[in-house]
Amino acid sequence: MTTQKHQRNESMQLSSLVRNLKSVRVLLIQPRDEESENLYRHLTRIGCRVQTSWPPPEINDADFDVVCVALRPIMEREASLVWDSSKPPAALVAVIDYENPVIVQAAVELNAHAVIGLPLRNFGTLANLFIALKNFRNDKDQRDQIEKLKRRLSGMRAVSNAKEILMKNKGVSESKAYSMIRDQAMNKRMSVQDVALAIINANEIFQ
C-alpha cells in the first residue's frame, strides 16, 4: 500500500467513525451514583445509545460497540466481570477515579482501549471513545489477519508434506506431485489444502 493510499484509507475510517458515533452502542457498567449519571448523560448527549448495568452482565459479541467499566467498584465489591481480554467482545473503556498503580494495573490487565477519569470532565470523553473504537478495531483487524496468515501457513505446510508423501510413495517429481493434488482438488471440488490433509491422514493410517 502506498503512503497516499494508506492516508486516504485512514481518513475514510475516521470519517466513518465520526458518522457512526451517532449510533455507537455503549454499555456502562457502574453502580448508580452521581458520577455514573454524569457519564450516562454526557454519552447520551454526544449521540451514543447507552445502557447501564450493575452488577456486570454477561456480554456477547456484537451486543455493544463500547463497554465502559468502573474498575474500583468491581475490585472493592468483588463483582465478577467476565471479560476475555485476548478476544474482547467490544472496545473497553476503563473508568477510574484513582490513579494508583493497583487500579491502573487492573485497566492494563483488562487490555483497556482507553481510560476515562473521574470526576468526569466532559471534555475528552468523545476523544476517548474514538481512540477506544479505533484501538479495538485495529486489534481485531490484526487478530483476524494473524488468524488468516496462520491458516495459510499451516495450509502451505500441509501441501508440502503431502507432496513429499506422494513423491516417496509414487516416485514422482515435486511438480508432478503438486499437479496430482491440484487435479484431485478440482475433481472433488475441495481446496488444495484439504486434499493435502486427506493425503497426510491416509498416509498416517497406513503406516
Binding site: 474500583r72 475490585m75 472493592e76 484513582y98 494508583n100 498503580p101 493497583v102 487500579i103
Partner: peptide, 11 residues
C-alpha cells in the same frame, strides 16, 4: 480494610 488505601499500600 477493603478499599483503595490498604490495597495500594499493600501493592
Amino acid at each position: 480494610s477493603n478499599y483503595v488505601f490498604p490495597r495500594e499500600s499493600n501493592r
